[in-house]
Amino acid sequence: MSLFEDYLSLGFWMNDKQRLAIYKYLLKTKGSIYKTQARKLIKEKFMLDCFANGEIAYSYNCGVVSFKARKIGEKEFDEERRSMKLSKVEKVSIKRLVKFFAQAEVDVLRNYPIPKNKDLEERSYAMNVYPYYDLNYYSNGEGKAKGLLMKFQYKDDELLDKLLAS
């Protein structure tokens, strides 16, 4: 089992730096897959995807993309979890969608990890209010300018190097 596969079962036990490392790892390793998916979503307006132990339903309407999630095997999708406005320029939209897909997968991993040895306790959905692609994440809601400064100062978790090396 690879290190990345190991982390697919850690879910809500990961700390935020580790989750951000997974997000960056996904961007680096799944970039081309995400781009293909982005074109598909723009064309077909709806897309279903699986990650860890969760399912993600993306929809694209009136220039806004959003996603809902559920645990694999559950009947109903939860409420809409995140949304993002896309650009009229397709290239820009695809760039944004790539980040949106990585964020959605990290969110789903946080809530629906793959059960390892024993059944996981039932928890209600948790997420960061500010997604990793928003500079407000780095400033914790204190503005994008401060977020930009803090993003430059941010030191990645060692997990990112380990994942990329594995």
């Binding site: 809500f12 935020d16 039932e122 209600s124 959905y125 948790a126 960061n128 209010v129 500010y130 914790n140």
Partner: peptide
């Protein structure tokens, strides 16, 4: 630990409560 702003849904068993377990 200085956490980011975290949103936790209400408990499915009792919607008057939200449990932060992370």
């Amino acid at each position: 630990l200085k956490s980011n702003l975290v949103q936790q849904d209400a408990s499915k068993k009792d919607r008057t409560k939200a449990h932060f377990l992370e």
